[in-house]
């Protein structure tokens, strides 16, 4: 991507005017697309800071919720809601929970997945394709077929609302991604490197540990970061299997901050925005850092 962009033929003299207005239109559309992608996040971050922009239009902000006009917001900048989320609603604790759960499940997935990724990429043994396909096929399973029995089992053996319990359950999300991403990274190492390594190393095992493992290390880091964001953002599994003690960030954003059932949410909206902002900022930062690999991660290693 990105190479060879500079060779567009120059416009013919007679078409210059039309072409340049066409370019201008393209830039307008490109900026509108930026607003589409980014503006909702800006609105959330501002709302968490007590700023609602609607009064700029009218002097008051009106929403129309449940059939009645609903006056909200205004421009009252204040870090109160962020501080409230952090110091009162226990946001750091949720971040710690997410971090611990993600770390455990990534550690397990890596321990199991690195050799398997290598086998799928490099070692010609029978049944490896089957294993690769099995992992993909299991990715297709709806989480509920797993969550319901796990919920029941966890409740009876005391794994409900514990770090290892949730971290294990997250494997259904993480494992296939990790294995298939690593498979890709092992395949990215040029064949010549493997050939040379085979000459210098005593055994296949040494090719793996001495050469492939070292070269694939950046790929392992990328995979871990990607998996981290997956777990950080995951809602359904953690909502079901965590309670007060291990509530994760994604769950906390929604249910930790004043969900009651059956009532329209007209409370705690600014807190929810502050918490939502605190939740998306680290995820966006990590994802932007590894953005070259996002297609690979989200397509389970299929797109390069």
């Amino acid at each position: 991507m990105g190479e060879g962009d500079g060779d567009a033929p120059g416009p013919a003299p007679g078409r210059r005017r039309r072409v340049s207005s066409r370019r201008a239109l393209l830039y307008v559309v490109a900026v509108l697309a930026v607003l589409n992608s980014f503006w909702p996040l800006v609105v959330m971050a501002l709302a968490g800071y007590g700023i609602d922009l609607a009064p700029l239009f009218s002097g008051k902000a009106v929403s129309y919720v449940a059939g009645v006009p609903f006056y909200s917001g205004g421009i009252f900048p204040s870090p109160y809601y962020y501080l409230f989320s952090i110091f009162v609603l226990g946001f750091p604790r949720m971040m710690l929970n997410s971090f611990v759960i993600a770390s455990i499940s990534i550690a397990i997935a890596m321990g199991v997945g690195v050799p398997v990724g290598y086998i799928l990429a490099r070692v010609d043994i029978r049944g490896r394709t089957l294993v690769a396909y099995l992992l993909l096929a299991l990715r297709a399973a709806s989480p509920f077929i797993v969550i319901v029995p796990l919920f029941v089992t966890y409740s009876s053996i005391g794994l409900y609302d514990t770090y290892p319990g949730v971290a294990l359950a997250e494997e259904m999300l993480v494992l296939a991604v990790v294995v298939w991403m690593l498979k890709g990274f092992f395949e990215d190492i040029p064949r010549e490197v493997y050939d040379a390594a085979t000459v210098f190393c005593k055994s296949e095992w040494q090719v793996f540990t001495r050469v492939a493992m070292r070269l694939v290390l950046p790929g392992v880091v990328v995979t871990a970061l990607f998996a981290f964001v997956l777990v950080w953002n995951e809602f359904l599994i953690s909502e079901t299997l965590t309670g007060a003690a291990t509530k994760t960030v994604a769950v906390g954003v929604w249910s930790g901050i004043g969900e009651t059932t059956g009532v329209v949410k007209s409370f705690g909206w600014d807190d929810l925005n502050a918490a939502g902002t605190l939740a998306f900022v680290p995820a966006v930062a990590v994802m932007l850092a590894i953005r070259r690999y996002l297609a690979r991660g989200f397509s389970l290693g299929q797109a390069r």
């Binding site: 959330m44 922009l53 129309y64 919720v65 950080w232 953002n233 995951e234 994604a250 954003v253 939740a279």
Partner: peptide, 19 residues
């Protein structure tokens, strides 16, 4: 990179629709 639960919140009524 945004969590789906946050996406749901981003597009809910008081977020942008009131503007």
């Amino acid at each position: 990179a945004v969590a789906p639960i946050v996406v749901g919140t981003l597009w809910s009524p008081p977020e942008m629709w009131d503007d």
